[in-house]
Amino acid sequence: MWHTLLLYRRLMSVQMRSQMQYRTAFVLETLSTAVIVAVEFGSVALVLNRFGGIQGWTLAEVAFLYGMSETAFGFMDMIFAGFDPPVFGQHVRRGTFDQLLLRPVNITAQVMGSEFTLRRLGKIALGVAIFAFAVQANQIIWTPLKLAYLPIVMFSLFLFFGGLFIIGATITFWTVDSIEVMNILTYGSSFTIDYPMTIYPDWIRRFFTFVVPVIFLSYYPALYFLDRPELAEAPPFAPFLSPVVGIGLLLALRFWHFGIRRYQSTGT
């Protein structure tokens, strides 16, 4: 275990150094991941500012959801990049995944260490900035419980997205053709939780409650942090389920190991 962790750290630092070698490219790419968030959030901000919010949520309140989602997803996209379904699918098709299997180290750690996209720092920085703006503008009444719970929510959301990437990567053992559908789960849930869940049709809300239960990692906790009136109608435990759902990652890992076993029996 210790050996695996040390090795993961080494592999990660290799990835970082390789990316830093091309300094200009690195700076540009980092900036561009930031610009995408800036432009997307900018357009939302301009419109919400003009029309005074969306279904009773102010721009600052939306920013709370938005910042949380972008930050957690950004971190996940950086650290779990080895599992990014299209990237991982390429590794499987090109036989580079086989090379990892030929090494006497835990395979999950190796896949995680195979990519570390430092340029996502741009997206993360913007996400943090949006979140900071939200915290400041909403005048949240902080309690010790809220302060303690915030990192847990963030971390759970991060793990949850990571689990989705792992599931997507595992599916590429079967097919790469239709892997685009995974975007519904990954980018789809990240986009969905940028806004209050009440704006969506019922079936979408149900989908993100029961199938991909991301609603417990963002919307319900946000009601609690922001003391929104919708909190009264929600089940009282709903904002506090995030650690449970975050552990969904374990299920994803089960599926991942099942996928590897199948890959070993079928090849590609």
């Binding site: 040390l6 090795l7 080494r10 592999l11 290799v14 150094r17 390789s18 070698q21 090109r94 036989g95 580079t96 090379q99 299997l101 030929l102 090494r103 006497p104 180290v105």
Partner: peptide, 30 residues
């Protein structure tokens, strides 16, 4: 796999952007 070695001529197992010696060093740890 700890006790075997494998070379596939068509593709490398080394790290593309690293100097050779650092790849070898990494394999020492692996």
């Amino acid at each position: 796999v700890q006790r075997i070695g494998a070379v596939f001529g068509q593709r490398t197992t080394l790290w593309w952007d690293l100097p050779v010696i650092e790849s070898l060093e990494l394999l020492r740890h692996i």
